[in-house]
Design a protein around this nucleic acid. Sequence first.
DNA 1: TGTACATCAGTGAACGCGCGTTCACTGATGTAC
DNA 2: TGTACATCAGTGAACGCGCGTTCACTGATGTAC
Lengths: 213, 213
Amino acid sequence: MSESNTVERILDAAEVLFAQKGFAETSLRAITSRAGVNLAAVNYHFGSKEALIQAVFERFLTPFSAALSERLDEMEAGGENITLERLLSVVSVLAMGSHGTDPRRAQLFFRLSGLAYAQAQGHLRSYLRERYGQVFRRFLRCLGNAAPDVPPMEMFWRVHFGLGATIFTLSGMDSLRDICKADFGADLSAADINARLLPFIVAGIRATPPGQS
Amino acid sequence: MSESNTVERILDAAEVLFAQKGFAETSLRAITSRAGVNLAAVNYHFGSKEALIQAVFERFLTPFSAALSERLDEMEAGGENITLERLLSVVSVLAMGSHGTDPRRAQLFFRLSGLAYAQAQGHLRSYLRERYGQVFRRFLRCLGNAAPDVPPMEMFWRVHFGLGATIFTLSGMDSLRDICKADFGADLSAADINARLLPFIVAGIRATPPGQS
DNA sequence: TGTACATCAGTGAACGCGCGTTCACTGATGTAC
DNA sequence: TGTACATCAGTGAACGCGCGTTCACTGATGTAC
């Protein structure tokens, strides 16, 4: 392998611990000790804690956004009529599957995204925007084509509403699932929750915009 | 006043700084220096940083949940038909207005809630659940009555989806508003965004549940 | 009315601790002549 | 083939810093006799 094993182990450990506790609350000592590597290795390989955080996101998002781009290419080339449901389920499947087959990875992904939005002082947010903004805007355009009744600006907000519902729910999924089990006796999987999210978001996006008949 | 001025000033400063940076990233030195009080005053009045965090939430949520309870009493006593739109707009108005008339306060509230969900290691989340869970469950029951076609468990999830959309959007409102202004030339107020959230959530909650005709 | 004591908000300085980062160093591997 | 040097992943120990918390103390106000 061209990448050293140490780098991967640091990223694995950081991913889990950041998702569990947050960025500021996770020390490099905790990460390196979990990874079984020397404390100084983080600064040796990444340069700083901040750069490590970005690297964790990059390892998640780069394959994801590449796969999304590719799927969008295929769908557009196919000339088929691309529905809202289709677009959202493609994203959902890619998010769940583009990091190996471990569904726990996908949950980490959403937890980290939630943290990133809540905590990031700017460095992370602007980095993500610059790095992945293009794919995001393309996806937004596809959504607009699939729901031509919704004006672009309305769509912009509704996508963020849906993103918020997704990130918030999947980021706090464990405790919500516990409550659900205690109150309703139903033991839901991540896929079950996803299946509930989709119709909610589709209906929200399709809602009659305010100030329209 | 029975409460000392120092206590209020600490809470004011903590509220703003926590919302700006997060809990771990905000030091007691930053808070006390902004408040213009002695560093030791936080531990004197609150006992610890953790207790200060809880106190910040309590000052927000206690008047809010009391006002919500009261409004629900009124509505139920009135015998009127309580619609989904009505319920959600009551919550929205109370959240916006129950902390004086300053709309900036409401935005802080959502930012803090987002942080609480993302960061809270448990102490804050379980504290909030214990302290305000009853009002929340009552509100959930009202929603169930207003949309009898949605099964209780489905409603549980959809309310959290809507909560997620709200908290996520209003918590990151400033930067989303900037993007919206840059991309669409529209300068939206918090009230405008709220007006867009409401139909999205109502439509999402009313969506045909999966596995139903 | 005067004195002794209790209470309490607030203070200034220091405490020990864990943090991210740095630095001189090791040892293995590759390269040039 | 042998030797000298360069590169590079990784290490162990220490650095200085900012953190939350503690503690002995002050000064004002209230209370008992």
